[in-house]
Each structure stands twice: as C-alpha cells, then as structure tokens.
Design a protein around this nucleic acid. Structure first.
Lengths: 206, 206
DNA sequence: ACATGTGAACTGCTTCACAGCG
DNA sequence: CGCTGTGAAGCAGTTCACATGT
C-alpha cells in the first residue's frame, strides 16, 4: 500500500467521529460536503482521503454512514482491542488511567507502572501500580501493544529504550522530550508545552 | 512578516528546549548540525527555520547558545507572562491545574471554571473553582490570554463560543471535538484519542 | 577550513475541475 | 442532475548545494 500521510490519518479519525455521531442520530447517508463542513476541510479533501483506500460512495448520492464508518474503523485498526500500559503514575499518568474515554474506543489499559517504590502497590482506578523494573518480564508474558509515557522529560528516553526493548511497537509520549527510537516503532507525541508556545507565538505575531 | 508554518514554530520550541539544556550545562556555542541531531531533523531545516527571523549565527562557528535561546524566547513570545484559565475541573482539567510545568514557562493559571454546581467552590491546587457563568464578566475585568478547554466533547463548541465572546483569543482544546471559531482566534488541539488511533493505524498497516 | 544563509530544485500534500456514473 | 472519484495543476514545506563570510 502507498504510504499514507499523517494528516490523512488524522482526518480519517475526525470523519469517523462525525460518522458515529450521525449513526446515533439515525442518518443513513452523508455527502463529502457535509463531512468536510464539520471537519474544517474541503469536500475534495475528504474524497481524496478516502480514495487511498477504495471507493465507498455512490455517485449522485453520497456515502452510507454505516458502511463508511465500518470501513474507517477497519482502516484505522479499531476492530480489535489494543492492550495499553501507562508508564508513570504521577498527575498525568493517574488522570489518564482514570479517563475512561480510551476504553470506549478499544484501547484497554491493562497496567500502570512507576519507578517510585512509594507508589508501587497503590491503586489507580482499580489497577495496582507495578514496579517499572517488572515491565520487560511481564511484557514477555502478555505483550502490550501501546505504551503511554507519562514520565518526567529527564527519564523519557531511558524509559522509551526499555519499552522498545520489551518489544512494544507503539508509544504515546506525554513527556516534553524528543524520543529516539528505531523506525519500526511508531511514536506520537502529545506536548502541551509546545502547543501553548504555539499559541504564545500566534498571540505575539497575530 | 511572511506567514510562518506551524511545523516551523513547533521546531523552534524544540530547539529552545535543547538550547536551555545546553545553557544549563554551560556550553557557549552550538552548530545547526548538533541542534538538528537532537531534534530529529536536518541542519538545513534548522538554518531555514531560523532564517525566517534573521541571521543569528556566525559563519564557520555556529550559534551562541545564550543569544539564540534569548531570540527564540522573544520570537515565541515567552518573555512575558500569559494568563491562562482552565475550563472544566474534571480529571483532565484538575490534572492540568496541578501540573506546575506550565508556570515554569510563563503560563500562569489564574482561574479554573466548571459548570457543575457541585464542583464550584471547591479548590484545585489552591485555586477555587468558579462558576462558568461568571467567566464573561470576570474576563472583562481581568482578560485572560488563553483558555484551556477540558470539557466533554458535547459541551466543547458551546464553551468555545462563550470563550470567544469573552474576548479570549487563544484556545488549547483537550476535547475530542473540532471547534469552529473566528479566524482571529488561535486554536491548538490536544487529542489523545486521535493520536491513539494514529498508533492503531500504524500498528495495523505497518 | 568550516558552518551559515539562501536561491533553486524537489517532494508531497492540497485544490481544482471535470469525466463518470448512479 | 448531483455527487463521487481522480488525473492534473498549484502550492507549501523540505532538501540541496553552494556562495558568502569569518
């Protein structure tokens, strides 16, 4: 398959969210124009994005909401459940562990790790915090799919190395730190500081 | 000034973080090559990014760490303090209010709002949670610069409209919902669900 | 000699515009 | 006729390569 742009995948997520909304409201059909208006893009963009994966629409009519959302879930890999571990049980990590929005979309939090012995053994939202040292061994028995890094920036690279060595192939990084990983490992970063600085720039040079 | 690409601004943030690191370690000079290696980009990219704002380097030598970081702080608008309000005192909002990493970079959280009467009056990290209804009026007296939206997706657009009407010109949106705002308002989104779906896609089609 | 700064070439995403089909 | 699907055109961001300055 031709390589798909990041921006395209992000938009597919957005489309899917709208489609699920429409599905709930019992709307059967939607046009690329309607999808575009809600997603802040253009109808041509919507059609182009979808065209990478096939032709799902009916000319003169639009897309079947049920069919298109099913195809998008399939494309995005949301038909299966993903095993997620959270690393770092501080403020952010704990908030994430308690955020049930993940589970709704098939991202199941199966464990929380921390390197602080004072935290190990406590519970967050029904999950006992485990020692980070035990990750490699436990990952061998029950390989997680995704590691969420909610650790201080100074520890992030070291933890990432450990995660990679444990065989985990996807990382969602909340630490304000650029990670170096093999290119077989997928990394997405959520960097609040960077976004705030983007706003600061916009306000300053707007 | 020529319009600056989002990607450029994001990289400036990254460079600044490294420069501050180098500053602490007492390193006086740095080349575009070193900056690039750490930031996962190329030296040409670094030089191009900086060239939009001037010529800060010395040929044959590199950049003065102190000088360049000062210029970047200036460019990014980090020389002043920004007044931030958090809207939504749920799990995410509370975690953000307690996250002191913001303050370090000049983003001062001045208020937390929630529409739930059961939460209003309680405290998060020393800040009393206020009624969302009081935002427009309070914003008139002490205009905040940035609103952080940590509300459910269903409420996000409505809250965004209120924020815009209150005169706030920058929004950091944590709700998994595309916001429609006037183009005079800057919006950055932090969408964990979307990032996870990006990882799901990468794992599925990798 | 070395590293910057930058026009030019390139790559790839977005937009256009229209043929194709229901 | 209306809306999709898609080559072609346009545009923006990245990379190249070298002249320039120290």
């Amino acid at each position: 398959m031709k390589r798909i742009a990041d921006s395209t995948v992000r938009r597919l997520s957005i489309y899917l969210r709208f489609l699920e909304d429409f599905e709930k409201r019992g709307i059967a059909t939607i046009s690329s124009d309607e999808l575009a208006a809600r997603g802040g893009t253009t109808s041509a963009q919507v059609r182009k994005d979808l065209s990478f994966f096939g032709s799902f629409g009916k000319r003169g009519l639009g897309y079947s909401v049920a069919e298109l959302s099913a195809r998008l879930r399939q494309i995005l890999g949301l038909e299966r459940e993903w095993q997620v571990v959270i690393i770092g049980a501080g403020k952010i990590g704990a908030a994430l562990a308690q955020y049930h929005g993940f589970a709704q979309r098939g991202f199941r939090i199966v464990a929380v790790y921390d390197s602080d012995p004072a935290k190990v053994g406590r519970s967050v939202d029904g999950l006992v915090i485990r020692s980070l040292d035990s990750l490699p061994e436990e990952a061998k028995r029950h390989p997680p799919d995704i590691a969420v890094l909610a650790v201080p920036a100074t520890a992030a690279q070291e933890v990432a190395d450990m995660v990679v060595k444990s065989g985990i192939r996807a990382i969602l990084n909340f630490a304000p730190q650029q990670l170096q990983v093999p290119e077989t490992v997928a990394v997405k970063a959520v960097n609040m500081a960077m976004e705030l600085e983007g706003l600061s720039f916009a306000l300053t040079n707007g």
